[in-house]
Every structure is written in C-alpha cells, then in structure tokens.
C-alpha cells in the first residue's frame, strides 16, 4: 500500500513571498526519506505541499506536480480532503485533541470516514495503538483525555491517530524536536518499524537523527535571506553523509554553517 511520490517543478508561495523554488525529486516507497537543511530553507513548507496542507494558510499557493503513483495531488478533480486521508501527517508539537479521550483521538479519523461499528473501531484503535508502540502504556486508560499523557506518549498517540486511517504516506514534521531524548529514541524505533508499511518522509533539524533513521536524505538550502529555498541534492543517506556531491551539503554536514 505504500506509494512512490514523484515531485516535479514544484514552487510554493506565501502571498507574494516565493518560499520554495523548482523542486523535483522521487520519494521511494517503504523507506524513510529525511529532509535536512538550515532554518528557513523551506523543508517544512515542501513537506506540507505533499499533503496539500500548505494551502490551508491564507494566501498560500502551490505550482507544479506531485504524483502519487501516477496520480497528481494537484490535479483539477482532486479534493485536498481526500489527499490528506491518504497522506497522513505528524506535527512538530504533539497535538492530540484536548477535549477527547485517547480512544476518541485515535478513532477520530475513522469516524470521519464512516467507520461506526464499535467492535470494528475497538479493533482498529487497538491495532493502531500497538502499531505506535503505545498500547501497553494506555490500554487501561483509553477513556482518559489524551492531554494527560507525557509529551512522547502524546506524539505516539498522534502517530497512532495518523496510521489508524491507513494512509499510504506518513509525513513527519520534526516529530521529536519537542521531546526528551528517551521519547525521541522511542519515536525513532517506531519509525524504523513503520517503514515496512509506509512511505515515510521526515523533516529534522538533527543530523544524527537523519543519519540514524533515514534511507535517503535530501538537503535543502537558501541562497540568502528572502530568497526561495531549493533542493541542493538527494541521495542515499550514507552517501550524503560521507561523500556529498555538492560543496554546500558537505559544509552543512560538517557543521561549517547552519
């Protein structure tokens, strides 16, 4: 069910600001692709164009093509709501719905899609929480509010919520940046497990993390303040971190800037 994503000639704008410029890349299925680069290089913006979340910001727009197994996400008949169903997302800060229980948080997306039968919901909620390595910690308090969990648990709850609807792609926008090291490790382990079933794209500030979890890495950069972000290079993670083709990548990897 995991799918290949092919991006070609993609530009994104915030009002009059050109945020990212002419990005083309292929994201392989059943693998983890990491986006790295300095702050403001457009990696998060680009990630949000992959499930059409970019355009929910007033004045924001996108040009170019994003093919999900040959189907253009930005095609004229494609409903962004349907796109977000198949391309799930996990955010930088854990954002479970505060008024809902743990159970209802996981079931939220399923209920939207018409799964109503209690036994079916129970099954999928359990599967998803197990899939997010959270089941054992919360199985006795499924009806407690999700906001009562620790930060790391909340983030795994958000992952469970995202995978409950069985997306084909999972986007993660710096999912560990608000977490402590132990929680980070738990999430990284989870990513390694999930990649057998999903196409995973992760934005990270942390280069060690990119090296640990990803199969392929894409490096983004900006030419200067106010200039749009660009894709500098993409390749096997091992290659990017050892023998990058571009000088800018090497400088960034070795910590000379950014």
């Amino acid at each position: 069910m995991a799918k290949r994503i092919e991006v070609s000639g993609l530009h994104a704008y915030y009002g009059g600001v050109h945020a990212i410029e002419d990005i083309s890349m292929t994201i392989e299925p059943r693998s983890v692709t990491a986006f790295i680069g300095p702050s403001g290089c457009g990696k998060s913006t680009f990630l949000r164009t992959l499930n059409r979340m970019h355009e929910v910001i007033p004045g924001a727009r996108v040009e170019g093509k994003v093919l999900l197994d040959d189907e253009d996400l930005y095609g004229p008949d494609v409903d962004p709501v349907a796109v977000r169903r198949v391309v799930g997302m996990v955010f930088q800060r854990p954002n479970p719905f505060p008024t809902m229980s743990i159970y209802d948080n996981v079931a939220a997306g399923l209920k939207l899609n018409g799964v109503r039968r209690k036994s079916r919901l129970d099954d999928i909620v359990e599967e998803s929480l197990k899939g997010a390595n959270l089941w054992n910690e919360v199985k006795d308090r499924l009806n407690k509010p999700g906001a009562g969990l620790s930060g790391g648990q909340q983030q795994r709850l958000c992952i469970a919520r995202a995978i409950a609807v069985q997306p084909q792609v999972l986007l993660m926008d710096e999912p560990c940046s608000a977490l402590d090291p132990i929680s980070t490790l738990a999430i990284e382990d989870l990513i390694a497990e999930l990649k057998s079933r999903y196409t995973i794209v992760i934005v990270t500030h942390n280069m060690q993390q990119a090296a640990r979890v990803s199969d392929r890495t894409a490096f983004f950069n900006i030419a200067g303040v106010g200039k749009p972000g660009r894709l500098i290079e993409i390749g096997e993670t091992s290659k990017i971190f050892t023998k990058p083709e571009q000088k800018a990548t090497e400088e960034y990897i070795t910590g000379r800037f950014g």
């Binding site: 197994d69 349907a82 169903r85 198949v86 018409g114 039968r117 599967e127 899939g131 069985q166 079933r197």
Partner: peptide, 22 residues
Amino acid sequence: MSTLTTPSGDRPALGGSIGAVS
C-alpha cells in the same frame, strides 16, 4: 498487527487512487 496490512471490508476505500470524499 498483520491485519493492518490487509484492508478489510468496512475500511475506507483504499483502491489504487487518492479516491474521493464521500
């Protein structure tokens, strides 16, 4: 957990395509 990989009957449509909102 293996059930996750096999789409079951009343799960949302998962055909090859993005699909549509009902």
